[in-house]
């Protein structure tokens, strides 16, 4: 399997504090990669580096062998919803991304129907429950057909019912695209075990695949 993301000797220093310390990694095109570690281990920073939100202090990140960024989806720990209805949030993702320009209402309706959340379509995205918001966040991340979906502890504030729905969505998506998931959940370690990266104090302790 070819490498979708290559991290070459990545370091991140913020205000003289070393957050990530000389990490080199190769991630394949499909399946799940779990990023684990204690609080402050640098998991979210590593995810943000891979997603291109921040630049490393040292080292290179290559996407499919080049420095050109790939289309990605990102699901935050706390759902980030635009102040419009659910349909508007999905439409915005389709219209305002640098990848697809396929602004297709039937695609939105179909996506919502398949995932049993069509009833949320016309509701204000800020007023639905956090669990529902996180489902919409995952669907919004996937609807733009990304190469990679990054998720930063997406189920940490969800109840078991919504956790299971989100996990099923991730599992289904992992068959077609790359999933990189930051988690502290032991359930996730059993469920998504294609590849596990364990960090401690910004250093790569273990990488299993």
């Amino acid at each position: 399997m070819s490498n979708l993301i290559e991290l070459k000797n990545i370091s991140l220093v913020i205000k003289n504090i070393s957050i990530i310390n000389d990490i080199s990694l190769n991630l394949g095109e499909r399946g799940t990669t779990l990023v684990t570690g204690h609080n402050g281990a640098g998991k979210s920073s590593l995810l943000r580096l891979m997603a291109g939100f921040i630049k490393p202090t040292k080292g290179n990140i290559l996407y499919g062998g080049s420095q050109e960024k790939l289309p990605i989806g990102f699901v935050f720990q706390k759902p980030v919803m635009l102040d419009r209805n659910v349909n508007g949030n999905l439409l915005h993702a389709l219209a305002y991304n640098g990848n697809t320009k396929n602004i297709n209402q039937s695609l939105i309706d179909q996506t919502l129907r398949i995932n049993n959340v069509f009833h949320l379509r016309d509701l204000s995205a800020k007023k639905i429950s956090v669990g529902e918001q996180q489902i919409i966040s995952v669907l919004r991340g996937l609807i733009i057909k990304p190469s990679i979906l990054f998720l930063d502890e997406p189920t940490s504030s969800l109840d078991p019912e919504y956790t299971q729905i989100v996990e099923n969505l991730i599992l289904k998506a992992s068959k077609e695209i790359k999933i990189v998931l930051v988690t502290q959940s032991t359930t996730h370690l059993k469920l998504f075990n294609d590849e596990i990266i364990h960090l401690s104090r910004g250093k790569l302790i273990e990488s299993t695949s």
Binding site: F74, V80, I144
Partner: peptide
């Protein structure tokens, strides 16, 4: 609030 989300979209 929206910077990371918009960056993820490559807007």
């Amino acid at each position: 609030h929206y910077e990371d989300y918009l960056t993820s979209l490559r807007s």
